[in-house]
Design a protein around this nucleic acid. Sequence first.
DNA 1: ATGGCTGGTAGAACCAGA
Length: 262
Amino acid sequence: MTLRIATWNINSVRFRLDIVERFLRDHAPDILCLQETKVIDGDFPHAMFEELGYRHRLLNGQRMHHGVATLSRIPLTEDRRHDWQDNGEARHIGARLPNGLLVENVYVPAGGDVPDADVNPKFGQKLAFLERMTRWSEALREDTVIVGDFNVAPLECDVWSHKALLDVVSHTPIEIEALARLQAAHDWVDLGRHFVPPPTPFYTWWSYRAADWKASDRGRRLDHVWASPAVAQTATRFEVIRDARDWGKPSDHVPQIATFNL
DNA sequence: ATGGCTGGTAGAACCAGA
């Protein structure tokens, strides 16, 4: 069976419902994992997803900020919500497919401005979140795909300037080391870099503040698709929908789609 | 070479994103 899983930080699913529909009509993944839905579950825009066949929906939303949703054409039989920051924010939803595969949708905290937990509590919370994910990964024995906005760009070629961003939250050594411990805890395979090996530049986010995001190309690879080693061996294709950064009223992140032949 | 932008919410000289 072929399985295509997409991930996209949408920055408000209601405000961008038209481009989500465009993405689903053009690319038709089996499963779409959204982050930053910015909507409580009671106000989620179900109708468009239902009409396009995404009849199975797991939501973990909250008022104003954050929030994740997993929309699927395949039945989803489990609903787990880890609070890896231990502060009540909605940043994870876990699903199980009929074949047993786990699909974990996660939105790692951005971490604020200053990369010092003593002066910026958000940075400490981000590191704590990654540490708790690491403990969870160590205990994980099942075939799993984990996707989402990890808010860390680990490699030098994951940012437009390694030198300029060394002290910028998302690319600091302390975050990169925390992400490396997480990756090692389950031998997670970074499918993005499996299909686009270093040193090829590879970004999934470009700031809204650039006058011309494409011309300046000051991006970062903040969004990731990781798989258990056995699952990663079944991956056949990886798509980055860069065009979506230019769709009307775009998100600052672009979608990615991984294809598996299970 | 960061922040010049953005959405949600209230009705902000805001908050959060990253």
